[in-house]
Amino acid sequence: MKLTTDLMAIEVGGTISFAVSGLIEAMCKGMDVVGLASVVFVSAFGGGPVRDLLLDRRPLF
Rank of each mutant, 00 (worst) to 15 (best):
G13F: 07
I10R: 14
G46H: 00
S38Y: 08
P59N: 08
K29Y: 12
L3R: 14
V42E: 01
L55C: 15
L3D: 04
P49R: 00
G14L: 11
P49N: 01
V42G: 03
L7F: 10
L36K: 09
A26M: 04
G14M: 11
M8Q: 11
P49D: 03
F45I: 01
V39Q: 08
V50W: 00
G48P: 00
S38F: 09
G30T: 07
G46E: 01
V20E: 04
L54V: 08
A19L: 05
V20S: 03
D52I: 04
D52P: 07
V33T: 01
G47P: 02
E25R: 14
I16R: 12
L36P: 01
V39R: 09
D6W: 15
L36S: 02
G47L: 02
G48M: 03
A44S: 11
D52C: 08
V33G: 05
M27D: 11
G48A: 07
T5R: 15
S21P: 02
V33K: 12
T4P: 04
F18Q: 05
D52Q: 08
G48V: 06
F61L: 09
P49C: 01
V42K: 09
A9K: 10
A44C: 09
V33R: 10
V20C: 05
M8I: 09
L54S: 08
L53G: 04
S43E: 00
F61W: 11
V42N: 00
P49T: 00
V40Y: 04
V42T: 04
A37T: 13
G35K: 07
L7R: 10
D56E: 08
T4L: 03
T15A: 13
I16E: 10
V40A: 02
F45D: 01
T4A: 08
T15I: 08
A19K: 09
V39F: 04
E25P: 00
L36Q: 04
G14N: 13
G13W: 03
G47T: 02
T15M: 10
T4Q: 03
L54T: 07
V39L: 11
F61S: 06
G35I: 06
S17H: 05
D6P: 07
C28W: 12
A44L: 05
I10N: 06
G35C: 06
G30D: 01
R58F: 15
A44Y: 11
V50N: 02
V33N: 08
F41Q: 02
V33Y: 09
M1R: 12
I16K: 10
K2L: 14
M1P: 07
L53V: 05
T4F: 02
M31E: 12
G46W: 01
G30C: 03
D32Y: 03
A9Y: 08
M31Q: 14
D32V: 06
V39T: 08
